[in-house]
């Protein structure tokens, strides 16, 4: 059975959930080989990857790999593609991993598909385009298919793999070392899950009314262990930081549950959340387009409804 390379997403040595989703997908397509790029690899990480089906784990944990923007990781994957001849390369559809996929595609002269929400055994990918309005099936026609898969699109299932570790040494070329990361600045975001990875997202929009009032959105999010998002109207007004914007020019999320409070549901926003599995909307305008998407909607003042919902959740825990 051919290998399927899965580029591991990790933060501070922890394997991110999307990688487990990719390993689950990869098992349908061949023998999953996890690729760890950059520092932080540990026995704990190895155990996690094996638990979800990694037959092999390629480890390239030199600092060089992570100290320059994107290019070294593309070189690493290109090297592994030439030695392992995999059936496919899977990466998470994050901003950086898509860029790695793009550069890899050029290096190995292969097609790349981005933002897949599913992959069939024939390597045909499902994509949702135009803000969720059109469903597309597409496939790579040249080379080794490279597919970037959206987080939260695949239910995770454990199935032990051998987890055979293989150290990989990569001589990062000088041309891949031209954009140097000189500092990584962490912005405070508390204990909430990351927006694109979160199973539940609670977002606030224009109806929230002020930066201070976003605390009621945060309280609801915390009661559900959710990430907080915001519509463009809210970030443009400066009520919530821009990196939490969900929508066409912000983040695309695909959680199990999306709660939109005080968000009208313009295409700008819908493009970023329409593939959520369950959508709940709270808005005082019964005509708001968000209600067309909602599985459950409450027409009312979010200042009443949201705190009551938060209290009810606390009571029922």
């Amino acid at each position: 059975m051919s290998e399927v390379l899965v580029l591991v997403e990790h933060v501070e040595g922890q394997v991110k959930k999307v990688t487990l989703e990719l390993l689950t997908l990869a098992r349908k397509l061949g023998a999953p080989s996890a690729v760890w790029a950059g520092p932080g690899y540990s026995a704990e990480a190895k155990a996690k990857l094996a638990e979800y089906g990694a037959e092999k784990i390629y480890v390239a944990d030199s600092a060089d790999i992570a100290d320059y923007v994107v290019a070294p990781k593309a070189e690493l994957l290109a090297q592994l593609v030439s030695t392992a001849s995999p059936a496919a390369v899977l990466v998470a559809a994050t901003a950086e991993a898509k860029e790695i996929a793009g550069r890899l595609a050029i290096k190995i002269d292969s097609g790349v598909l981005t933002d897949a929400v599913g992959i069939g055994e024939d390597l045909v990918a499902d994509q949702s385009i135009f803000g969720g309005g059109v469903n597309v099936r597409s496939r790579v026609t040249k080379g080794t298919p490279i597919i970037a898969v959206r987080p939260n699109a695949t239910p995770v299932e454990a199935a032990a793999g051998a987890g055979a570790e293989e150290q990989v040494s990569v001589a990062v070329s000088d041309t891949a070392k031209t954009a140097k990361v000189v500092d990584r600045v962490k912005e405070e975001k508390g204990a909430r899950p990351e927006l694109t990875e979160a199973a539940i997202v609670v977002s606030g929009g224009r109806g929230v009314g002020s930066a201070e009032n976003f605390s009621i959105i945060e309280k609801l999010a915390d009661s559900l262990g959710a990430a907080v998002g915001a519509s463009r109207a809210a970030t443009d007004a400066g009520w919530y930081p821009h990196q939490f914007q969900v929508g066409q020019t912000g983040k695309t999320v695909s959680p199990q549950l999306y709660i939109a409070a005080g968000i009208s549901g313009a295409i700008q926003h819908r493009a970023g959340m329409q593939t959520a599995k369950t959508i709940v909307a709270i808005n005082k305008d019964p005509e708001a387009p968000i209600f067309e998407l909602a599985d459950y909607g409450v027409v009312g003042d979010l200042n009443q409804v949201v705190p009551q919902l938060t209290d009810e959740i606390a009571k029922r825990k």
């Binding site: 409450v298 009312g300 009551q308 919902l309």
Partner: peptide, 24 residues
């Protein structure tokens, strides 16, 4: 490709003091 099937119509309720509880 195909147009995405419309989402099944959801339940929309008007808040009459119990909207949060109903959402819960």
């Amino acid at each position: 490709f195909a147009a995405a099937p419309p989402r099944a119509a959801g339940t929309i309720v008007k808040d009459e003091g119990d909207g949060g509880a109903k959402a819960a």
